[in-house]
Every structure is written in structure tokens, then in C-alpha cells.
């Protein structure tokens, strides 16, 4: 069983939901980034989404835009992200998902990317701006199917399309909580609950919800209906507010810990 499936299986047994943490690799700089992510991994994160920075992140709000800019300024690129992935793999058996725009992968070469990502110990990839209509050109160059292709389902996705997307997805489904960029406000838990119910009719994959989840209360609310909760901007804002704080790694670790507690719900809907 691969690391992603195993993680959800273990969580199911422990009656917990997955805490999925997005963090921009190389933020606030490449050397500190590794220790911050390592500390987060050891503090309760279940799945790591490692962000590959792109100069023009059109799906991201200000917090992740600025985190990408900081990482790029320190010279981050896909090759360096894969190096960080490899070093993290020495430390943890947690699933690592590479979260990228398509252009850095296209520039790297889809074939080399598949090989190098697997060798580094990555478990999956989510390419924000590569819808199913365009993704053959990437996956057709892959020499196998060991890398999970995480798919996005949006609030605007009709049911029929949900089913089509779910068919080509693996690992888990990333349900976008609302229209808008990452980190936007206005989480509507009732609406998300309806969407999840609909989505469950189209897939048996675990469903993780992301975009605009920023507090432990949000996490608890989403965890009661989904299989996992994705946090991104909230972590990046914390980095930004503590750029010169020597305790940055432990601040992030504490936040992970706080969120993780909120995913342990006794009477949650069982998977």
C-alpha cells in the first residue's frame, strides 16, 4: 500500500481526519525552510504539500504570492524543491505531495520530473493549472503510475464533470471550498457539506477540503464532514509575521499541533 492510502487507512482506524499542510518550499529562505518543514512534520501533520514557487501564481492570494516571491528571491526552483523533498524523506514517512503550477514542470520536462520526484520520495503531484483536458501531455511522458495525480474539484464543477475528474484522480480529491484564490475569506461549512455529499456519489477517494481555512474552529468544522483539511495561507501568514523570529520553526510546529487536535473528533462522520 502506498504512503497516501496507508495514511488515510491509519487515520480511519484512529478516528482522525488528515491535517494536510501546504508550505512553500524555500520560504522564508531555502536553508530555514527545511528546518521549519521538518518541525511541522514532527508536530502532527499527516500529509505535506510542498509548494513549488512560480513567478505568476494566478490561483493564489497575497499570502502565498508573497511566500513564493520570498522563496524565488532566495533562488528556489523545482530542482531545489526535489532536493528538499529528498532530505525530508530521510526524516519522515509522511506522504509528500508536490504542489505546482505547470510551467516549472514543463520547463523541467515531465519525463525527468516523474523520475526525479519518485526518486526523491514524493508521493503525488497537484498541478493547479493543469485540468484533465490538458494533463495527458504530462502523464503520457511518465514511465509509470506510482506518482498520485491529485485532482481539484471546484465549487463551480458540475456533477457530471466531478465524476469525470474523479475517474482520472488518485490519492485523494482536493475540494476547493469556495470560488476565489487561496487564503480568501468566507468559509461556508453548510455549502461544503452539501458539496462533499454530492462528491461522495462520484468517488470513493478520500476528500480533503482547502482554501480559506485558517483557524482551529474552521479545521474542526471541516474535519467533521471531510476526510482531510488543507491549510496553506494561514501557515504562510505566520511565517511572514515572524520573519526575523529565531523561534519561527517552533511557532509553526505549535500551530500544526493546535490544528491537529481539531481534526480528532469523537463523533465525526466515519469514512
Amino acid at each position: 500500500m502506498n504512503r497516501i492510502d496507508k495514511t488515510f487507512e491509519t487515520l480511519r482506524q484512529k478516528k482522525e481526519k488528515a491535517l494536510v499542510g501546504f508550505i512553500t518550499a524555500g520560504d522564508p529562505n531555502i536553508s530555514d525552510s527545511f528546518s521549519i518543514i521538518k518541525a511541522m512534520c514532527k508536530s502532527g501533520l499527516d500529509i505535506l504539500e510542498l509548494g513549488v514557487s512560480f513567478s505568476d501564481p494566478t490561483a493564489d492570494g497575497p499570502a502565498i504570492q508573497r511566500s513564493s516571491a520570498r522563496a524565488l528571491k532566495d533562488g528556489i526552483n523545482l530542482r531545489a524543491v526535489l532536493e528538499i523533498t529528498g532530505r525530508l524523506r530521510q526524516e519522515t514517512s509522511m506522504p509528500i505531495i508536490l504542489f505546482s503550477y505547470y510551467n516549472p514542470i514543463y520547463a523541467y520536462g515531465a519525463k525527468a520530473f516523474y523520475k526525479d520526484a519518485l526518486a526523491a520520495g514524493a508521493d503525488g503531484v497537484l498541478v493547479v493549472d493543469l485540468p484533465p483536458e490538458e494533463s495527458d501531455e504530462m502523464t503520457s511522458q511518465w514511465s509509470g503510475n506510482e506518482l498520485a495525480l491529485i485532482r481539484l474539484i471546484a465549487p463551480t464543477t458540475p456533477l457530471k464533470r466531478m465524476a469525470q475528474i474523479a475517474q482520472s484522480a488518485s490519492g485523494f480529491i482536493y475540494l476547493v471550498s469556495k470560488t476565489g484564490v487561496t487564503g480568501s475569506e468566507g468559509l461556508d461549512t453548510e455549502d461544503i457539506k452539501d458539496k462533499i455529499e454530492l462528491l461522495r456519489s462520484a468517488t470513493r477517494l478520500p476528500i480533503c477540503v482547502g482554501f480559506g481555512i485558517s483557524t482551529a474552529d474552521d479545521v474542526a468544522a471541516i474535519a467533521s464532514v471531510a476526510d482531510g483539511v488543507v491549510i496553506g495561507s494561514a501557515f504562510e501568514r505566520l511565517i511572514e509575521d515572524n520573519l526575523n523570529n529565531p523561534d519561527l520553526a517552533s511557532i509553526l510546529a505549535n500551530k500544526v499541533n493546535e490544528f491537529k487536535k481539531a481534526t480528532k473528533i469523537k463523533d465525526s462522520v466515519t469514512l
Binding site: E133, E134, A154, I165
Partner: peptide
């Protein structure tokens, strides 16, 4: 060419 956008925009 093509359509390289996030899923939220695809239906539109």
C-alpha cells in the same frame, strides 16, 4: 494554445 487554468475557471 489550450486551456491551462484552475478547475474553478474550467466550467466557465
Amino acid at each position: 494554445g489550450g486551456r491551462y487554468v484552475g478547475e474553478t475557471l474550467m466550467p466557465a
